[in-house]
Design a protein around this nucleic acid. Structure first.
Length: 723
DNA sequence: GAGCACTGC
């Protein structure tokens, strides 16, 4: 087996790199977060100075002299927690304006804020005063007192709706910019524009090495190189070297190779756990099963009979199932974690010494031509490969076995990920931009511009749902209201329409239930993970209604409410109580947002209006469906003789996903929430409609056959581009 | 009868 790989002596120096260790409760200065099960490791490095402290003076100097500072540092250097504190202590908030630091994930946002509050105020109850956080539906900060605010990137973007110049902030720090989320990318463009108006604003960009000069150049707006406005500060990391091994030949079957590589590690290597990266959850299950069925032979490979055990890790597992991957291995046993990309950035497992990297991941890619999402297995980027390798070497030197050749690494893998903005549906992002006041999308300073076709498609969709006018201008109503509602545009449109159809309570409930449904693994029903789908369908059946999946979810919530929100009732019906609780909270949050945004009510007035909205029942399914239709009429389809469906807009051939309650009923006309191409093109979350409702709800699309709207759309798209 | 990587408002 070892002949597959280059010998250690053949490892050239460029295959070694550093990543600093950070075995503490909160991973400082990086996207990762350690599950609670790793609390035991938290005090190991508490008192060790973080590398960033060596750069304090250099950083403060750079922020003083330059409008934009790109801080390059590997994960764990301490930049996320320390930089805002340096600036605070140096007096950057003395003028009354604060510091905001964005993160791509909620969990990192809240945990980092908690840690900084504790560090700065030496108190565990300090969060929400000097230091706070802001994420959707969960704010913990004080507009008077808070000087350091951690927020998700999407939340800061949303704040710009009411404060487009971010006038509350003196310094904006964007963290994990190399991950290239849509929100972070858009914030970069907006900050670049704000800097032209606000010369006092300071921007700090935290990024991985490969992108540093790209971002520096993006924010540079002096043409004179002796008078730069943006600079780069590099911060070294703190960690142990990771030796990289490549295969000598391309592997035919990376699952087989991963299996063999792991056996080889187990046979020949000292202590230390193994983390295997594979693209999909099915492949995780396959490998785990394969290890488990050979566990005795594998354990007997070693003289000391050291045992090996294998656990899966992907987001579709329930919280409880995921915890097993974080439990430390017993003495004289080796843990093998088989994981999807979740282990690349979202979570950190302590004690990993060996990495096995297949070199592939599953990625969602949007096709603007078809308006469809495609989920396909693709080679990872070099940046991802390095990130994966860096998951070893956090507590001691590690090794990474790449199941591809060194030549592939340098010549086939792309340098960094395709930015999300280039492979996603832009409807929501463009609505946000319009609401912030960016009318001309084509001229927006994108770090990487999305495909023009994606922009055009998004504008067409926004026009069709009344968010923008023919001239591409955001409408005061419903456009501005849709932008203000913290949900996807189609849902926002349906929620606004619900007022006219007098079914606000029902639409809010459906949106809340869908939100919970989307939580992978544990959804509303017990046993809904892939292995136990039969129980899931059995539990759902008594609540199933002929109108489809969305009204079935409503039916479940109504039954839960009717039981007096009884946990015992949940237990008796195979429904997970915590998820119904979550739906209940979400309903209230959504209702409150609606009261703020559409009724202009705040405080106690909003609370009482929300309660009123949530108590007015409408038992008429047709009005609920019409409200839904107001948002989702573009996602309509008609059944074909062979049982497939044809979408009315776009004429795509699709199939109802078998998980739908309507999969075998084949109603004539339906709307769907999502279309995705897997082995076939599926539509999911189906609702039955009457065809004449389409004309009632969207006459501009379905009535006039002679002059297709495409003509009009094309006109305003060209006027949009020429602005 | 199929099977979805991972986030966010």
């Amino acid at each position: 087996m070892s002949k597959l790989f280059l010998k250690p002596g053949e490892v050239s120096s460029r295959n070694q790199y550093q990543e600093q260790s950070s075995s503490r409760l909160f991973d400082i200065g990086e996207s990762s977060y350690d599950y609670e099960s790793t609390i035991a490791a938290s005090f190991l490095t508490r008192n060790t100075p973080l590398p960033i402290h060596n750069y304090k003076e250099a950083l403060l100097y750079a922020v003083k002299e330059y409008r934009t500072v790109v801080v390059v540092g590997e994960t764990g250097s301490g930049k996320t927690t320390q930089i805002p504190q340096f600036l605070f202590k140096a007096g950057w908030t003395d003028g009354g304006k604060g510091i905001v630091c964005t993160q791509p994930r909620r969990i990192a946002t809240t945990t980092v804020a908690a840690r900084v509050a504790e560090e700065l105020e030496s108190s565990k109850d300090a969060l929400g005063a000097l230091v706070g956080f802001a994420v959707r539906f969960d704010n913990c900060w004080d507009s008077e007192k808070t000087k350091i605010l951690y927020a998700t990137d999407g939340t800061l973007l949303r704040m710009m709706l009411s404060d487009p110049l971010l006038s509350k902030f003196q310094v904006v720090m964007l963290d994990e910019v190399h991950e290239r989320t849509v929100s972070t990318d858009i914030l970069c463009g907006l900050l670049k524009k704000i800097q032209r108006i606000r010369s006092d604003l300071r921007v700090i960009i935290s990024s991985a090495t490969v992108d540093a000069e790209k971002f520096r150049a993006f924010f540079e707006y002096s043409g004179d190189s002796s008078n730069n406005t943006a600079t780069i500060l590099s911060v070294e990391g703190r960690s142990f070297p990771v030796d990289i091994y490549y295969t000598t030949y391309p592997v035919q079957d990376y699952l087989q190779a991963a299996y063999e590589a792991t056996l080889n590690i187990h046979r020949n290597e000292q202590d230390g756990d193994v983390l295997i990266f594979v693209p999909s959850s099915e492949q995780v299950d396959y490998l785990v099963e394969r290890f488990q069925s050979n566990i005795f032979q594998i354990s007997s490979m070693r003289k000391d009979r050291k045992r090996l055990f294998c656990v899966p890790l992907y987001s579709g597992l329930s919280y409880k199932e995921q915890l097993a991957a974080f439990q430390p291995a017993p003495v004289n046993e080796r843990k093998v974690v088989v994981a999807t990309n979740i282990a690349e950035t979202s979570v950190t497992i302590q004690g990993i010494v060996f990495i096995v990297d297949t070199g592939f991941c599953r990625m969602r890619v949007y096709s603007p031509e078809t308006g469809m999402d495609l989920l396909s297995i693709q080679p990872i980027s070099r940046a991802s490969a390095d990130q994966r390798a860096g998951r070893a070497g956090r507590s001691r030197p590690g090794k990474c076995y790449r199941l591809y050749t060194e030549d592939s690494y340098y010549n086939i893998l792309r340098e960094s990920v395709v930015p999300e903005i280039c492979r996603t549906n832009l409807t929501s992002a463009i609505l946000q931009l319009k609401a912030i006041g960016i009318e001309n999308i084509m001229n927006f300073p994108f770090v990487d511009a999305p495909p023009a076709k994606s922009v055009a498609t998004a504008l067409e969709v926004l026009y069709a749902i009344d968010a923008i006018t023919e001239d591409g201008i955001l409408s005061e109503f419903p456009g501005m209201v849709m932008a203000d509602l913290p949900m996807e545009p189609f849902f926002a449109r349906a929620l606004i329409a619900a007022k006219d159809y007098e079914c606000t309570r029902e639409i809010i409930t459906i949106i809340a239930m869908l939100q919970v449904e989307q939580v992978p693994g544990d959804s509303v029903f017990k046993y809904s993970s892939s292995r136990e789908h039969k129980s899931f369908e059995a539990a759902r059946k008594p609540f199933g209604v002929a109108e489809g999946d969305l009204l079935t979810l409503l039916n479940i919530y109504d039954a839960f409410e009717h039981s007096g929100h009884s946990l015992r009732w949940c237990g008796n019906h195979g429904i997970v109580p915590s998820y119904m609780k979550k739906a209940r909270l979400l309903r209230r949050s959504i209702a409150l947002s609606l009261c703020n945004v559409m009724y202009g009510l705040y405080g106690a007035a909003a609370l009482s209006k929300a309660d009123e909205l949530l108590s007015q029942k409408n038992p008429d399914p047709s009005s609920i469906i019409k409200a839904l239709l107001k948002g989702f009429f573009m996602n309509s389809a008609v059944v074909q003789p062979d049982g497939s469906y044809l979408t009315l807009v776009g004429k795509k051939s699709v199939t109802i996903h078998p998980s739908s309650i309507l999969a075998s009923r084949l109603p004539k006309y339906v709307i769907y929430c999502e279309m995705i191409h897997l082995k076939r093109t599926y539509i999911r979350n189906i609702t039955v409609i009457e065809p004449q409702w389409l004309i009632q709800v969207a006459p501009h699309v379905f009535e006039r056959r002679k002059s297709p709207m495409e003509v009009k759309w094309k006109q305003f798209i060209s006027s949009e581009s020429s602005k």
